[in-house]
Design a protein around this nucleic acid. Structure first.
Lengths: 201, 201, 201, 201
DNA sequence: AATGAATGAGATTTCATTCAT
DNA sequence: TATGAATGAAATCTCATTCAT
C-alpha cells in the first residue's frame, strides 16, 4: 500500500473514529454531523463524500463495532472447552466493551436500532450476528433438570443478554471488574441460591 | 374539586399521556414538543403553560411512572410473605407494567437520566425510589452459601433488575406471559442449572 | 374584523406577496426560502409556521394566481356575447398576466408543475381550472367547414393555448400590446391566410 | 482519428447525452452535476475536464440541439417548393424532433436562456439560428389581404413558434402524429375558421 | 483523461422556546 | 388557560466547483 493510499484510507478511518467516539458517548440523536466533522477535521459537507447520510455513517460504525466484538468473542471463547466457562468468558468480553465508550462497540450498546429508522433492520441484523453467538453458548449449556416446570432456554438466554447489556447503565470503572461481574452472573445461575431444604416452594 | 379545575386536570393528564406514549416509543431526543402538542390536541406553545421545559415535562412523566410502579409493587408484594415469592411477584409486576400497562413506566426504562442533563439527578433519584424496593427484596433473600467466592448481593440485584428491564426490548404480547417470565427468572436463580457432579468448576 | 386579526392576516399576505414576486421572477428552483423570508421580513424558520414546506408555499401562491386569472377572465368574458370576441378577450387577459411578473399569475406561467413533484398533481389541477375556461370558449366557436380533413378542436385549443402561453418567452412591454396580440391571433384564425385560388392544396 | 481520440469522443458524447436527457426532463435548476456524472458513468469532478462549468455544459447541449434541428430542417424543407407546405414540413420536423427524436432539442424548449445568466446571450443567439429559418418560411408565405388591420408577420411567426414549441408540454406518443399536428396547425391558418357571412366583425 | 477527496456556501427544514393577547 | 405568531439556533444535506495526483 502506497503512502498516498494510506493517507486516503486514514481520512475515512479518522472519520469513523470520530463518529464512533461521539455516537458512543452522545447517542445518535445527541450527535450532530457538525460535531463529527469538527472532531475529524472536516467540513460537515465533506462527510457526505464518504457516507450518504447520517444513518449510513452510524451503520458503518455500528457494523465495525459488531465486527470487533465478534472477533474478540471468537478468539477468547475458542481458548476454552467448558460450556459454562465459555459463557462466562463471553459475558466478560461483552461487559468489557461497555466501558470502552470511545470504541465502536460502545455504539452498539448505546444506540438502539429503532432510533435510526432508515437502517433499523440492518442494525438489528448486525446485532443479531453477535447475539447469535451468545445464543449458541446458552444452548450448549448442559442444564440440570428443573425441579418444577421445564426450563425455557429462550428465557434463559434473554435473561443473560438482558442482565449483561444492562451493565452499561450502571457499570463504573474502578468498581467490580468485568470478569468478576461475569463470574458472579454465572455463579448465580450454576449453583442454587435457594436454601436446599425449602426447595419445594 | 370544581369543574374548571377538573377540566384543567384533564388537559394536563392528556398532555402527560401523550408525552408518555411518545417518550416511551421514541425516546427523549426522538420526541419533539411539536409532536407531543399535536398528540394532546394542543399547540406547542401551550405546553409551556403547564411545564417550563421539555426536560421538566419528561421529569413529570417519569415521576408519574415511578409513582405507578411503586404503588402497584407495594400493593402486590404486601400480600405475600415468602421472600422468593415476593421477588417473583415484584418482577412480574415490573414486566407487566413496562410492557403492557403503562407507557409512563416504559419511559423510565427507555430514557436514561444522562440524556436529560438538566434533570438527570432528579431522574436518578426517582429511579432509585423504585430500585430501593427491589434492593430490599433481594437483600431479604435467604441465600444458600456459595460454593466459590462469596455472593455479591449488589451484583445479584443489578443482574435481576437488568434482566427484568431488558424485557422491554424483546417482550411481545401473546407469547410468554409476564408472570411466567418472572417465574422462570426466579427458577433459574433458585435451583442449580449446573449438573451437580461437575460442581467443582 | 379587528385590527389585530387584520395585522395577523397581513403578515401571511406579506409572505405570499413576497413569495409571489420571487417565484414569478426567479422560478421555483431559483428562489430560496431564505430570500422569501428576507423579502417578507421574517426569519427562514418562521415561514414554516404558515406553510409546511416550500412546495406548499408555492402551491398557495399558484392557487391564488389561478383564482385571480379566473376571476378576471370570468368578469371580462361575461361582458361579451360574440364567440370569437370572447376568445379574443380571454387571450388578451392571459397575455396581460404574463407581463405582470410581480403578480401571482406570473407564477403560473413561470413554474411548471413537474418542477414541484410533491405537488405537481395539485398544480396541474389548478392550471386545468383555468384551461377549462379556454377550452369552453374554443368549443363554442362556430367553425366554418374545413376544405380538407375535419378540424380537430382539441388541436385547435392546444394551438391557441400554446401560442398564448409562449408569449411569456418573447413579450416585452413597450412593443405590441396584449390586446393587439390577441386580436392578431384571432384574425389569423378567422380569416383565410392562404390566397383563395390556391385553396386546393 | 485515432482510437484514443475516438474513445475520448465517445466519453464526451456519453456526457452530452446524459446531460441532454436530464436537462430536458428536469430543467436547468433541477439537474445537478452529480446526476449528470452518475448518468454518464463519470465522477462529478471529471465533467470539468470536458466543460469548465455547468452553464458551459448546458450551452454545449443546447448548441448540439440547435445543430440537429437545423440540419434536419434544411434537409427536409429543401425537398419542397410550395411555401405553405414547406412551413408544414418544418413544423412537423420541429414537433417530431422535440418530442421523439432528440433530448437535445427538448433542452432548447425546456431551458429558458435567462435561467442561465452566464450564457444567456449565447443561448439566445443559438436559438435565433433556428428561429431565423422559421422566420424565413413565414416571411415567404403569400398571405391573403386582411379584412381588418394589416397582418403582423412577426406576431404570426411567434404564434406559430409558440404553438409548435408548446407541443412539448402536451404531446404524447400514440395519439395524433407530429405530421398530423403540423397539418392541422397550417389548416387552421390557411382556411377561414370563421363562417363567411359574419366576416365583417 | 479522469479520479478521489474535499471545500465552502447555501439549501430546506426542525427544534425548543417566547410572548403579547 | 391557552393560542397564534414568531424567533434564533442548529440540524441534515446538496450544490457547483477545485485540485493534487
Amino acid at each position: 500500500m502506497t503512502a498516498v493510499a494510506k493517507r486516503s484510507n486514514n481520512r475515512n478511518e479518522a472519520l469513523l473514529d470520530a463518529a464512533s467516539s461521539l455516537f458512543a458517548s452522545g447517542g445518535y440523536g445527541g450527535t450532530s454531523m457538525r460535531n463529527i466533522a469538527k472532531a475529524s477535521g472536516m467540513l460537515p459537507g465533506s462527510i457526505y463524500y464518504h457516507y450518504p447520510s447520517k444513518a449510513d455513517l452510524l451503520y458503518a460504525v455500528y457494523a465495525r463495532g459488531v465486527d470487533m466484538i465478534c472477533e474478540r468473542h471468537d478468539r477468547m471463547v475458542a481458548a476454552c472447552n467448558d460450556a459454562w466457562k465459555r459463557l462466562e468468558i463471553a459475558l466478560a468480553n461483552h461487559i468489557l466493551t461497555v466501558t470502552e465508550t470511545s470504541d465502536d462497540v460502545g455504539v452498539m450498546n448505546r444506540v438502539l436500532p429503532d432510533q435510526v429508522p432508515e437502517r433499523s433492520t440492518d442494525l438489528i441484523a448486525q446485532r443479531d450476528r453477535y447475539e447469535q453467538r451468545i445464543r449458541e453458548l446458552v444452548d450448549a449449556l448442559p442444564l440440570a433438570p428443573s425441579g418444577g416446570p421445564a426450563h425455557d432456554r429462550r428465557i434463559l438466554r434473554l435473561m443473560i443478554i438482558g442482565a449483561t447489556s444492562w451493565t452499561q447503565t450502571w457499570y463504573r470503572s474502578g468498581h467490580t471488574r468485568p470478569e468478576a461481574i461475569a463470574a458472579q452472573f454465572c455463579a448465580f445461575l450454576k449453583q442454587p441460591l435457594q436454601i436446599q431444604q425449602s426447595i419445594q416452594q
